[in-house]
Design a protein around this nucleic acid. Sequence first.
DNA 1: TTGGCAATCTGTAACGTTTCAGTATACTGA
DNA 2: TCAGTATACTGAAACGTTACAGATTGCCAA
Lengths: 347, 347
Amino acid sequence: MDRRATEKDDETSAKERPTLKTLAFMTGLGVTTVSRALKDAPEIGAETRRRVQLVAKQIGYRPNRAGVRLRTGKTNVISLVLNTEHEIMSFVSDIIYGVTEVIADTPYHLIVTPYSRSQDPLDPVRYLVETGSADGVIISRTQPNDPRARYMLERGIPFATHGRTDMGLVHPYHDFDNYAFAGEAVRHLAGMGRRRLALVTPPVGLTYYGHTVNGFADALSEVGASEVPFNTVSIDHTIEQIRMRTAQLMRRDDRPDGIVSSAAAATLAVVAGIEDAGLKLGRDVDVVSKQSSELLHLFRRELLVVNENFRLAGSELARAVLGWIGGADPGSLQSLSTPGEVQAYRG
Amino acid sequence: MDRRATEKDDETSAKERPTLKTLAFMTGLGVTTVSRALKDAPEIGAETRRRVQLVAKQIGYRPNRAGVRLRTGKTNVISLVLNTEHEIMSFVSDIIYGVTEVIADTPYHLIVTPYSRSQDPLDPVRYLVETGSADGVIISRTQPNDPRARYMLERGIPFATHGRTDMGLVHPYHDFDNYAFAGEAVRHLAGMGRRRLALVTPPVGLTYYGHTVNGFADALSEVGASEVPFNTVSIDHTIEQIRMRTAQLMRRDDRPDGIVSSAAAATLAVVAGIEDAGLKLGRDVDVVSKQSSELLHLFRRELLVVNENFRLAGSELARAVLGWIGGADPGSLQSLSTPGEVQAYRG
DNA sequence: TTGGCAATCTGTAACGTTTCAGTATACTGA
DNA sequence: TCAGTATACTGAAACGTTACAGATTGCCAA
């Protein structure tokens, strides 16, 4: 039993959210005109346009997302697809903050779409595309031959990858130059006289695993140092596993005198393992590690660090997706972040 | 120039996403009947209902969110409102994972709504409510007299707070028992013979600041220990500030021999400060700290820790909001997480 | 036979937006 | 004068869903 009038509704009810109809009534124009005036369509008179926009601003008109979405299919949503088990901790918050920073003054919302180890990583992406839940997607844990990227490219939905692919397909990405990182790390250790180096790799299968391994290997031969294989762990392993295996490694006769680590959390475990083996950081072995927040130097001042800025990554990824949505050339929306120098502790 | 037929559209186009109309055509029923059959309305014959649901499942029908939202106002969205500057790192990812875990098998999406230091914390909440962008909201950094909670209560939108309020108003929350934590920490330190204790507090103004301070004070008088005031920092301060001020504190004659810290990141800085002052953890001073991931024992094995599970918090908060949305009594959707025992390093 | 009623099913309208296909008016050029 | 056209505006329809107000059928009691 709705007792409200049907036509004059917008006039009387000050409490309801204003719609185009409200604006039309207030300005004495048609709904269509108001709609077009708000988006600066050329066939609307300049004065009318100003008038409508003024009134709209005054009464705080905001387009109804559901209406727009139903009519046009535009969701004004960016989805960040995350693995809820593997993603490194601070990684996630920083990326999210980076993304929100960029979309803050756009009509876009950020939705977080999770998937777990048990699932096919393609599942969440398929869901998003099939249900048309987002205008753009950001994925991480990118693989050289990434089915998700291929799928989205086929379906024509804008996306950006954190990390590069290697399929001969062009799409926006942001990546940290892990080849350069590993190289710098090796050169730095070599410069300190370290000669037998081990690498704690990224997860096997991800693109930057290859970049890191190659950067490591190339620099090794460049400086004439040798590699101590340490293939039993990657940064995806648990703290306990990394710690234990590092301890094993460090108890061997042919133990490394330098270690390069691809993630801060792993580095904590590596150092624990080193100390479990009765060795001392900075004396028996040096460690260069990536980190995304300035914590490692508090942990052990002997650690050597290279910073990776995930907040920046988030911003770049958001910019890339928005750019693609906006019609820019996907090939122009690729960026690579160069690592800074290896930093020792400064008093 | 759309050349497709108007009526038989659903019959021919196998590529389009199925709608109620598609189902209606396939089953030979009316759109209304299909709609009701899918939601188990009682006035639909049992067999029809089964038939419709079968076909719907077969062709992978999924209701169009925009259609539902436009018609009913239901968004199927939960919004997590985050401060992009203050929130502790791993905190955020864990909460998000906890939330997504719970909403995974519901139609809900999670959107992240950020706000920054410069803004009124009420802004994002007001935006969500005014635009009807979410069915439920989760907020953190809860204050005793929290305008956001008051606002949402007035507007009748379901929400849950991470942390309690103290306004005499009833609403769902999840909280960690910081009163108990601080008390346990003090008792543990006292049990080790520590007598002069300092507290690194939560941010002043948040509800759990009070809980922590009270737990600390009550336990102090219970065990007959004394407090060394350390009001110049809270866990919201920067690593550098905390480190410097801890060093200052520890150089004084009346320095504490025990410290209770409310967050892991702050603890790193505290320990650095202690060592800057030339003192040794475990000998000159003991530190009990909360942590949300098992890192502190890698950092210094002398540290004493109490775990706070943010993933659990996320799950509980999500459950609470969904419960309220589902019509449950808000008063029944409150939970308090009891801290475990203070843990020393175990081999 | 008829009226009443329960059980099932259905068409229409509406949510707020944009697109399509106009209409009305005034101005232009010949 | 008149057609032609540019300018400024408008109503109706459609996106997919649900609520409302029926419609149809069969059955039972009187």
